Simulated assay, not measured.
Amino acid sequence: MSENCSHNCGSCSSNCSSRKPADFLVPPNEHSKIKKVIAVVSGKGGVGKSMVTSTMAVLTNRRGKKTAILDADITGPSIPKAFGVTEKAYGTQMGILPCESKKGIEMMSVNLLLDNDTDPVVWRGPVIAETVKQFWKDVVWGDVDYMFIDMPPGTGDVPLTVFQSIAIDGIIIVTSPQELVGMIVDKAVKMAEMMNVPILGIVENMSYFKCPDCGGIHHIFGESQIEAIAAKHNIPVVCKLPIDPAIAAKCDRGAAEEYEGEWLDPMVDFLEKMR
């Protein structure tokens, strides 16, 4: 039986419901003061989770909040590219200093430590999970109002490490309007409930396409079921993002801070009301 568990539950694996999250929490760097930590998650890849993370950081930064991004998607990091950040992070006696975007958004990503952005990260799960913890406890974040954690898809090692090691104030689930969404959201919701992490809302990306010529709305991936899914889980905040090539193009050329749109404003409004 693990010394961290007071219950005789056999193997005492990490999913033992008797364990308290506080038993595993890791404090941030002593020179960091982070007020709110928001994790952006998805049940599957390719739904625009990093784009939502970047946009949320841009919008909160525009409202005068000190904002940071912890890129926990170690094997698929994309945050530095979205902001056009190419310089490398370096360490001091206090810890690792994060890099900053043109508008002052702090970030830490494995691509800021690799010699070449295209070098693959061929690491085992435990090494990847420990790297994410180092991004939290060894990086000198300073005073931060909102930190967004760009999570890898799924419910594997890294999400489990983040939920257990970092005091998360809430998660945002990113989905797309496909038939498998209900099952995928169910998995993300159940993991959050197991980890006692509040769910702030669902963002449906690629929800529709608005024709620039006729103004007609087309549901490329089928009719949205997001309202029913949100109601099923009693999740109050829902945002729908269109298929907009201009947004993707800006991220591809490192200009995420040029984002224009009001689709995510309700989620930012919600964050500002959090205590």
Score class of each variant (00 low, 15 high):
A129N: 08
A82T: 10
S78L: 04
K66R: 12
F83C: 11
I69V: 14
D119P: 02
L114Y: 09
R63Q: 06
D71K: 02
L114V: 10
K65C: 06
Q93H: 12
I69G: 02
T75I: 15
F135S: 10
K88S: 11
M147N: 11
D150R: 02
E100P: 09
D117I: 14
N111H: 06
D115R: 13
D157S: 11
R63T: 05
V58I: 08
F148H: 01
K102V: 15
L97V: 15
F135T: 10
G91L: 12
V58C: 01
R62V: 02
G76L: 08
V58Q: 01
K65I: 09
G64K: 06
I96E: 01
M107T: 03
V158P: 03
V139R: 01
V158Q: 02
W141E: 09
L59T: 00
T131N: 08
W141S: 08
V122Y: 10
G156F: 06
A129Y: 00
C99D: 02
V85Q: 04
G91R: 15
T92G: 07
D157N: 08
G95W: 06
Y90G: 12
M94F: 07
D117K: 14
A68L: 07
S78T: 07
V110C: 02
P152V: 00
V139K: 05
D73F: 08
G84W: 01
I69K: 05
A129H: 00
Y146F: 15
V58K: 00
S78P: 02
N111K: 08
M94L: 13
N111L: 13
V132P: 05
R62F: 00
Y146S: 12
G154A: 03
D117Y: 06
I69A: 04
A68E: 08
Q93R: 13
Q134M: 03
K102E: 15
Q93G: 15
P80A: 03
G91A: 15
